[in-house]
């Protein structure tokens, strides 16, 4: 649940950040620097979200391959706060 909330929040905040930035950057060479910066930010977010992608992938795999594989799906062992 928290994962989903996290994804929604990140998308919303990134969207809020990119929209004015994209509006500000138009016209000349300065936009390249801004796209590089925003690209790096997006990269940070995507890389940080990798574990979630893997987990979703594991869940999907578990769904399609039955009970055998579900044992391999990661188990939440520590309280997430």
């Amino acid at each position: 649940m928290k994962t989903i909330v996290g994804i929604i929040m990140v998308t919303a905040f990134l969207g809020a950040a990119v929209a004015p930035a994209a509006a500000a950057a138009s016209g000349d060479g300065s936009q390249l620097a801004i796209y590089i910066f925003l690209g790096m930010c997006a990269l940070i977010i995507v890389v940080q979200l990798f574990p979630i992608f893997f987990m979703l992938y594991g869940l999907l795999k578990g769904l399609f391959h039955g009970k055998k594989e579900t044992a391999e799906a990661p188990v939440e062992v520590v309280v997430d706060k």
Binding site: A17, P20, A21, A24, A25, S30, A33, I34, F37, L38
Partner: peptide
């Protein structure tokens, strides 16, 4: 512009 964007 970069300062503004990074600030946002």
């Amino acid at each position: 512009l970069l300062h503004n964007v990074a600030g946002v």
